[in-house]
Design a protein around this nucleic acid. Structure first.
Lengths: 194, 194
DNA sequence: AAAAACATTTGCCATTTGGCAAATAATGAA
DNA sequence: TTCATTATTTGCCAAATGGCAAATGTTTTT
C-alpha cells in the first residue's frame, strides 16, 4: 500500500523532455519518495557525497557555499518544477562543496542513486531525458548569471523580484545579498530606494 | 588519402571521459575535419542553427551576444583542449542567439551533425562521453561566473590574467571589459593601476 | 515580560565604477 | 608615407557600492 500522490508536476516535467508510456510513468512514480523539508533544513551538505536527487514539487531551495574569505555565498535559487542536486558531485561520487538548503517549506520527490540506476536500466529513454534536463538546467544557470555581471545591483534585485515575487522579504537579507553580489547594507538601501 | 594529423589532444581529452579502443579512436579521427580559422572569424553566428561542433586544438574563442541595449557582451572565453558550440541551439536545432568568434588564429577539429550521429550510432559509449563532457563544461562555466559577482573588477581582471596570461593585451579592450562586466575606461584604469 | 541573540537599517565617509568627451596611440587603407 | 579610422587612455565629475559601527527592529529563549 503506497501513499497516493499524483506527481503530476513531475510527470508533466519529464514528458517535456521525451515520451514515456503509462507503464514507465508508473515505475517512475514508484521509485520516487515524497519528502517534506522544513524551511532552513538541508537537502544535501558540503563534504558529503550526494546520494539523492530531488524534484521540487513545492517550495524554493538555494545552493550555497563558503568562499576562501569565509563568506557564505548563495550561488543560485531553484524553485518548484525543477530538479535540485549538486550534479557534478553526484555523478562523480565525490564530496560536494556546496549546501542545498530549503529557503521555504518544501515538498520533494526524491530519487536515490539506486532508483535512478534502476530507471536508467529499465527505461530506454531515461538517460536521454535526464541528460536533456541536466543540460537545460545548466544552460539556464549560465544564461542567468552571465548578464548579471553587466547589470547594476538594483537591476539584479528587480530581476530577482520578478522571478521570485514572494520571496524577497521572507528570506534573510544575507541569502539575497550574496546571490546579488552586494553587501547587506547596500541591498537594504536599494530596497528602501524602490 | 587523408591528411595525417595525430589529433592527440582530442584523443587524450576524450579518454578522460571514457574508454575507447583503437578502432573506435580511428573512426573518431576519420570523422573529424581539420579547420584553420583566422583571428576575428566566426565559427558560428547568431541567427543560424549550429550544425558543427569544434574541438579547439589551438587558439582561443569567445562566445558573445548583444543584449537588449545593443551592447556586445562577451559571455565567456574558451581555450584549447575544449569543445566549443552553442550546445543548446545545436541540440534543439534552433537558431543560436550568440556568436562564436576566434580571438586568436585557431586550429579546430570539426564534427558535423551527421558525423556525431554516426559516432553515436557506432560507438556504444559515445553518448555517455559526450554527456559527461557537456556537463563538465557547463558546470565549469557556472562555477567560474558565480564567484565573479562577488569580486571587484580588479580581482576579476587578475583572475582572467591567470587563466589567459598571453591574451589580455592582444584582444580588443571591449571583449575583455564586457566579459568582466565593466566599461572599457574602467578596465583601462585598472590595467594602469596594476 | 525581560533578556539575549540575531537581523536589518542607517549615518558617515572612502573607494570603486560609470559617463562623457577630448587627447593620444595604434592600425589599416590609399 | 600619409591620411583616415579605430582603439585606448585620460580628465573631470557624478553615481554606485562598500566598510564600519551604532541604532533600531525582530525573534527566540528563559
Amino acid at each position: 500500500m503506497t501513499i497516493f500522490v499524483t506527481m503530476d508536476k513531475l510527470i508533466n516535467y519529464l514528458l517535456e523532455f521525451g515520451q514515456l508510456n503509462q507503464q514507465q510513468l508508473d515505475l517512475i512514480k514508484r521509485k520516487a519518495q515524497v519528502l517534506e523539508l522544513k524551511k532552513g533544513n538541508y537537502f544535501s551538505e558540503a563534504g558529503k557525497i550526494p546520494r539523492q536527487v530531488a524534484f521540487i514539487e513545492e517550495g524554493i531551495f538555494r545552493v550555497c557555499y563558503y568562499n576562501s574569505e569565509g563568506d557564505e555565498i548563495t550561488k543560485y535559487f531553484v524553485d518548484e518544477n525543477n530538479f535540485v542536486v549538486d550534479i557534478y558531485s553526484f555523478n562523480q561520487k565525490i564530496p560536494s562543496s556546496e549546501y542545498v538548503q530549503a529557503v521555504t517549506d518544501c515538498t520533494l520527490l526524491v530519487f536515490s542513486t539506486e532508483s535512478l540506476n534502476d530507471l536508467s536500466a529499465t527505461i530506454i529513454q531515461w538517460d536521454s531525458i535526464i541528460n536533456k534536463i541536466t543540460e537545460k538546467a545548466l544552460v539556464d544557470k549560465v544564461n542567468k548569471l552571465s548578464p548579471m555581471l553587466a547589470e547594476d545591483a538594483t537591476t539584479r534585485y528587480l530581476n530577482f523580484l520578478e522571478k521570485f515575487p514572494n520571496l524577497a522579504n521572507r528570506i534573510p537579507l544575507s541569502y539575497l545579498a550574496s546571490y546579488l553580489g552586494i553587501t547587506q547594507s547596500s541591498l537594504s538601501r536599494i530596497r528602501k530606494s524602490i
